[in-house]
Amino acid sequence: MTIRTLSGAALAATMLAAVPAAADFPDREITMVVPFGAGGSTDIVGRIAAQALSERLDVPVVVENRGGAGGTVGTQAAAGMDADGYAITVATTSTHVVGPLTNASVRYDPVEDFAHIGMIAETPYVLVVNPDLGVSDVSELIAMLEEAPGDLNFGSAGQGSTTHLAGLMFLAATGTEMEHIPYGSNAEATTALMGNEVQVLFGSMPAVLSQIQAESIDALAVGTVNRSPELPDVPTMQEAGVEGYRASLWLGLAAPAGTPDDVIATLSDALADSVGDADVAAQLASNGAEALAMTPEEFRTLISEELVTYGDIVAAMD
């Protein structure tokens, strides 16, 4: 904070002094921005990571919820915080891929404006259907869609949301048609599926898991490369015959661009160690998320690649 008020010379002096001090990182509490409201699935995953990081770095990691506009408000704020490692943010498919692609008001670059730290977890999209539809696997669903193109509805958590794009990806991969009905949130879309206003939904795992377990909706496939430990009997899209469909919601950590490399390395090591911990993985799993480790470079590459994949879908949308 005070750095901004210092003169240029003093600033340079402070920065010189700060370089060796990085070896002491961290020596005070770290603020973790969660760009979604308290109690949501991003918040839960963020808090699990914060707790694990705090144990490994021996400083408190304080979660600060700054929700709004699909996570882009908090992410924009985080991009402008001090690049000293004491401000980090939860970066997700929404905030670092879909938001910047679909929201013209986003002012940050998800690749250039951040120093990426690593991955926490991914949550699969699950293709779920209303049981009254009477289909038991993906091929039956595709057959039904081919017979009556555009008759069925699929729901999403909003136009241009991650769940909408996951649906469009499926339609593109299978060459089928469905009417898109947008809702305000994952919870609303799930309710609509249970009430049969929409017959198909590409839901995020935390939003639909308990309903699948209660058999009030049927899971046909998961969008991840491997089967989900939470739903071992549900095939992946590849196994179900939909080639090239890979979609999941991931959650990682990033710091503002300019955060020193050794600070990022410290954070990244602590994060990788946390994610590799069996207890942390179990906590994540009980919330529908699978622990996933990635180096800063891998994470950065993933974001760049997905910006292209999703960018194509968004471009085809209008």
Partner: peptide, 17 residues
């Protein structure tokens, strides 16, 4: 939604079960 999150943080799965 916050209440629901609190349930999940405490290891309770909300839902018909």
């Amino acid at each position: 939604a916050i209440m629901l999150g609190a349930l999940m943080i405490h290891g309770l799965t909300p839902g018909p079960q």
